[in-house]
């Protein structure tokens, strides 16, 4: 997972200029694909394109070793604080799953 940084703000979204120093955002680094559920919702009423998936969980994941957060879809029910990891990237969607303990 790539995160972009300037003036202490990290984001998974690449923007052009930093709103603090007004310079072009150039710092990027790789961080682990895993993290913890910062918050979530279960979407029962979906937009037309996603109606066939409902109900589905959308979670905001606090990425490990970064201050950046990532919006993902999860196919199972989760709680805040649950450790999660990347399952696959499909059609631009980060699909995450709970970390399984052996």
């Amino acid at each position: 997972m790539k995160v972009y940084e300037c003036c202490g703000v990290e984001s998974v979204t690449k923007k052009v200029y930093c709103s603090t120093c007004r310079q072009e955002i150039k710092n990027e680094r790789e961080v682990p694909d895993e993290g913890t559920v910062y918050s979530y919702t279960v979407i029962h009423i979906a937009p037309a394109d996603y109606a066939h998936l409902a109900p589905y969980t959308v979670a905001l994941v606090q990425l490990k070793d970064s201050t950046a957060k990532l919006t993902v879809r999860i196919q199972e029910s989760v709680q805040i604080g649950d450790p999660v990891q990347l399952d696959q990237i499909a059609d631009g969607t980060y699909i995450y799953q709970k970390v399984r303990t052996a």
């Binding site: 998974v12 979204t13 910062y38 918050s39 979530y40 919702t41 279960v42 979407i43 009423i45 979906a46 937009p47 394109d49 996603y50 998936l53 589905y56 959308v58 979670a59 905001l60 990532l70 919006t71 993902v72 879809r73 805040i80 059609d91 631009g92 969607t93 980060y94």
Partner: peptide, 24 residues
């Protein structure tokens, strides 16, 4: 244009995520 749209997030969905964190 972002992964957030592809995740299937909606407007009520955004405020649902906010509400669960607020409760927490």
């Amino acid at each position: 244009t972002t992964n957030e749209r592809y995740a299937g997030l909606t407007f009520p969905g955004f405020f649902g995520v906010v509400a669960n964190r607020y409760f927490y």
